[in-house]
Design a protein around this nucleic acid. Sequence first.
RNA 1: GCCGGGGUGGCGGAAUAGGUAGACGCAGGGGACUUAAAAUCCCCCGGAGGUCAAACCUCCAUGCCGGUUCGAGUCCGGCCCCCGGCACCA
Length: 816
Amino acid sequence: MKTLNFQEIERKWQKYWEDNQIYKAVFDKTKPKYYVLEMFPYPSGQLHMGHARNYCIGDAIARYYLLKGYNVLHPIGWDAFGLPAENAAIKHKIHPKKWTDNNIENMRKQLKQLGISYDWSREINTSLPEYYKFTQWMFLKLYENDMVYRKKGIVNWCAYCNTVLANEQVIDGKCWRCHNIVGKKELEQWYVRITKYADSLLSELDSLEGWSDYVKQMQRNWIGKSSGAKINFRVPELNEFLEVFTTRADTLPGVTFISIAPEHPMVRKILEKNSNPELDLYLRRSMSLTTTERTKEKTGVFTGLYAENPLNGNLIPIWVANYVLVDYATGAVMGVPAHDQRDYEFAKVYNLPIIPVIMPEYEVENAAYEESKGKMFNVGFVGGILVDGMDCNDFRKFVVKYLESRGIAKEDINYRLKDWLISRQRYWGAPIPIVYCDSCGVVPVPFEDLPVMLPDDIEITGKGDSPLAYSSEFVNTLCPKCKGKAKRETDTMDTFVCSSWYFWRYTSPNETDKPFDPEELGYWMPVDQYIGGIEHAVMHLLYSRFMSHFLYDLGVVPTKEPFKNLLNQGMVCKDGKAMSKSLGNIVSIEEIIEKYGADTGRVFELFVAPPEKDIEWSDNGIEGVHRFLNRYFKYCIELINSEVYNHDQEVDHKRILNKVYKSLYKITEEFETQRYHFNTSIASLMEMLNYLEDNKDSVRRLNIKHKEILINILIKVLAPFAPHIAEELWSLWGKKDSVFKDKWPDINTEYLVEEKITIPVQINGKLRGQIEIENNAEIDQIMDCIKMDHKIYKHISDKTIKNIIFVKNKIVNIIV
RNA sequence: GCCGGGGUGGCGGAAUAGGUAGACGCAGGGGACUUAAAAUCCCCCGGAGGUCAAACCUCCAUGCCGGUUCGAGUCCGGCCCCCGGCACCA
């Protein structure tokens, strides 16, 4: 038996696919479309088998839809701007562009070696002016609609990356990219008003049926909507109001103090009015601490001022407290120690009174009763109405209305989500198309002047301010409005801006005067299946959804939600950890291709577990898959070359075709239900092959028609997973065109029905045996068989049958 | 603490309109072929017990304890543990 040369076969078909442009997606309204997209990679240098999983999953789906006759759009590109290119520039004295382009070249070659079905004519690269011109276009659209603004404030600062970070990009206090602790800095920066779309982003999650609850929940958490009311407390000494936000207005009668954040503007006014060394010291101390240090335990200091409870005019002390966040809601909270655990802890530290106003429904000891359940007490009359005995939920509504009528409260909603900080003090990114003019102020660069080109001759030092600021040629420009002297913005955009719209660009990547062609966009969108890692559950997926909602409202894009179905694949681990270059536990693509071929590597990654689970790389496992593919190939060759017998010699062809059609059914279903558990699909291929090999004689005697059905299915069902082998078999079978130009086999339901089936027989719910009987047999017939079956019958022979439960073709349960 | 997902052989994992638990693969054991090895092929493989042995038979097994049901990995109630998200968000 000649051994298979996977590498040779793979090279041959990869060349064929490229020469014949098999995967080119051509806009054609008469055909149904299917858009499969894998999150595009950052060109870090090398792909390994950990990265490959994403592409293998997407490729199986793309190839299935090709075979189903869809017009498939399966593109790839490069998220090419970003920090590592600059770090490489500093370390190796190589220009970021050069470094990036080299990496892309290498990774492109690797993807081609894997044989992924990309339409390479649509390849994009976010670092090319042809692309970032439209990233700037996006910025201008936002600007035009007052969705982007400049603000001075405290920002997340990564000292290692020398740049600011958006909130989403700080994970557990660490930088999402370099994992170093993130600090604070006060800077004037550009923000996108994503919070304006908080409600839209939240409510549309419900429409995303093709997303996992898991990711949707993460987005809900991140947006963090909370409904309540703003309430004004008068501060007589300052003769002004202090506004607090609360979700529990019903606890207002129980307020015993007010806490404000150290950065709250009122603190400065208090200090201006009276000197307060204690307060001064406290402020200085909290400012010098990091967020984590600051929030270890509750501390605070009395300001010396009082506020009036709007319900009863009682004077309550105003404290500055470390547990109040300045950047959430009003930066001030009403302290209700009886019904809020945090306030309770604070009150305990400083001996503040605790006044319960809701009767707890169970015993509470050394803690606040936080439930929104129970009757009010201890309150008396509010607005002429007796509150005591009222349900706290009713009182909450009542009290807000009552205060609202007096103009001191208002229903309000707050979000955890913050505006998206998009300026970056880095070189390798899309320049922000803004000009500062002494006479006109902030002026956007006109659309027709795009792109604002990133200059090539920049020295990258990694010193911490924008490298572009050092290029006088870049900085000094003329004001688009008055033509006077002006300076350019020198920050570049967060790379998440580049990736928040790339999926639209693929639909018409060569447009030069607009980001995309509306016709093509209308045809291809939305992305039918998006595939990527869970790490982007909030960052990339939230930003992209935002851009989509925004542009949908402008009528620029055809769907509100860009990604109809989302699959988050798990990580590929080795030695228990995610494969990564820095950990030195990678399995390279080249190594796998050289040893086993791409098809083996691909099938292994699909077979070992369902796509959403993490998998552990296994050398033994891949050997097993390699053995299987070899057997499959050899079996098919033998079958193709086998002599065809006279049809009247055919025996039990139904049994053979039943097995094969069952496999086809199983595999088809896995795609159609979008479950994509390809591990079971491949298991059913293995089962089918085992069965065919065990029944060689029956297969040998198939007539020509049945043999052709068999070969056709064998090749097609393999094709989405091992495309090179499938192509080779197809051509060895004498077919001229690519197998992917052919059709996925129809399921012949006639063969799905088995003639004889095995029915389990239980006595009192315990399995006592099986009987083989024809399909759809009735209970009488089955009972006759049971009586002849000694093993089963002995359990009932000396007993009386009380009941028989019979589910046709499923089970018999005899109760004695 | 709140929210989401999950606990099945030595391992990865199958099986959900409740119906033969452990498909398929890996590892392991035995055998065939071979001078030998590799490759390939065949057989066994959850646990305990019965029989000299085998065929076979019995009992126990899907995190734990209950419940519903003729029948529960699957449904319900209560616990334990693991993974992930949010977390002094008022």
